[in-house]
Design a binder for these strands. Structure first.
Length: 317
DNA sequence: GCGTCCAGGTCTACC
DNA sequence: GGTAGACCTGGACGC
C-alpha cells in the first residue's frame, strides 16, 4: 500500500441548491469515483487519477444546501506545483458539477406528475462525472446480463486485484484500475475472476483507451452525435452503453430500467420488456426532452420514495 | 440432485 | 439491412 501525504486544502462554492451528501453519495449506491471509497458522517474519502496521477481526497461539506461550501483535502505522493494544484481544483470542480443550474429542470419537473415528487425527495442532488471514461465504460460492460450480486462481485474483483491501494488520512481506498494496467494483462487473468465473456471486451477496451482515445472531458467538447459515434467505435460498446456513458447523456434504457419506466409510463413492467425498450426510450424523450437524463437520474435514485408517493411498486432488487 | 431459465447487451454469422 | 443465437456464470425454480 502506498501512503499519501496531505498536501493542500481548497474550497469550492457550488451553485445552489447543492446537496453535498446526495451528490457525492447517491441513494442507489452509485460510487463517485471508486466502489471502494468510504462515506461516513457527511465526509467522503475517495481517490481517482487526475492527469495520470493518483489523487486522494477527503471531501466534506462546510455549508448548507442553499449556501453550499465543499472542503477538499488533497493527499498526494509528492509536493504539488501550483499548476498541479490548479489542475486538481479544475478537475474536481468539473466532476462535482458545481456550476450545474438545476433551476430549469426543477421548474419543469414541478409540473410533471412523476418528477414533482422526486425533486422534493432529492432536492439539491447534482449529476457528477465518473472517474474516467474507462471506469464508466467498464461498469457498463460488467452490468451486462448478470444479476446485481454478480455485478458487485465482478466489480470488487477488478478493483481488489488490479486497482492501486492508497492509504491516507487513516483510511484505505482502492482506486479503479487504469486502462494501462488492464491492457497489460492477459485475458485469462480477467477470465479467472468470473468475468466470463466480458473479460475479452474489457481487455480490448483497455487497450483502446490506453493508447489513442478521447477522455471523458474531450468527448464533452464534441457534438453529441460525434461523441456517440466515437463511443460506438469502442469494443463492446453498443447503443445502450453509448447512451449511458456519453457526457452529453441520453435516456439509457435497458431491461432493468425498462421495467421501472414501463410501470411509470404505462402501468406495467414485465410485459415483453425487451420489445418495449425502444417505445420507453421514445416516451421518456418525448416527455422530458433535454432533461431526460436528469429525469432518469432522479428517478433511479428515488425508487422507494416514488413507490411511496405514487402508490405503486417500482422498486426492484 | 438435476436440468432449465434468466440476468441492467453486444457481436457476429447467416439470410 | 435485419435478426437469431451465442456468450460466462451462478442463483432460482420446477420436477
Amino acid at each position: 500500500m502506498v501512503r499519501f501525504m496531505h498536501r493542500f486544502t481548497f474550497y469550492l462554492q457550488p451553485r445552489p441548491p447543492y446537496n453535498f451528501d446526495l451528490t457525492v453519495h447517491k441513494p442507489a449506491g452509485w460510487p463517485l469515483f471508486t466502489p471502494a471509497e468510504v462515506f461516513d458522517e457527511g465526509a467522503l474519502w475517495t481517490a481517482l487519477h487526475i492527469d495520470g496521477q493518483l489523487t486522494c481526497l477527503k471531501l466534506s461539506s462546510e455549508g448548507t444546501i442553499e449556501r453550499p461550501l465543499v472542503q477538499a483535502k488533497v493527499f498526494l505522493r509528492e509536493k504539488p506545483s501550483p499548476d498541479r494544484k490548479e489542475a486538481v481544483r479544475q478537475a474536481l470542480s468539473c466532476k462535482l458539477n458545481i456550476t450545474q443550474d438545476l433551476g430549469a429542470f426543477y421548474y419543469r419537473a414541478r409540473r410533471d406528475p412523476i418528477l414533482r415528487h422526486t425533486v422534493d425527495n432529492l432536492y439539491g442532488m447534482h449529476d457528477t462525472d465518473p472517474e474516467s471514461l474507462f471506469a464508466n465504460a467498464t461498469l457498463a460492460l460488467l452490468f451486462r446480463t448478470a444479476p446485481f450480486q454478480r455485478n458487485k462481485e465482478m466489480i470488487e474483483y477488478l478493483t481488489n486485484n488490479f486497482g492501486e491501494l492508497a492509504g491516507f488520512c487513516g483510511k484505505k481506498v482502492r482506486v479503479w484500475p487504469t486502462p494501462e494496467k488492464i491492457a497489460s494483462l492477459d485475458v485469462a487473468d480477467l477470465e479467472k475472476c468470473g468475468l466470463g465473456y466480458r473479460a475479452k471486451y474489457i481487455q480490448q477496451l483497455a487497450v483502446a483507451l490506453a493508447s489513442d482515445s478521447p477522455s471523458f472531458e474531450d468527448l464533452r467538447q464534441l457534438p453529441q452525435n460525434e461523441a456517440r459515434r466515437r463511443l460506438l467505435s469502442l469494443p463492446g460498446i453498443g447503443n445502450y452503453s453509448a447512451d449511458l456513458i456519453n457526457p452529453h447523456k441520453g435516456f439509457p434504457i435497458d431491461t432493468w430500467s425498462a421495467e421501472v419506466f414501463g410501470k411509470l409510463f404505462f402501468g406495467h413492467g414485465r410485459r415483453d420488456v425487451r420489445e418495449t425498450i425502444d417505445d420507453i426510450r421514445a416516451e421518456g424523450l418525448r416527455r422530458w426532452g433535454d432533461y431526460a437524463w436528469m429525469a432518469f437520474l432522479y428517478i433511479v435514485h428515488d425508487l422507494e420514495g416514488l413507490s411511496r408517493e405514487l402508490g405503486i411498486s417500482i422498486a426492484t432488487e
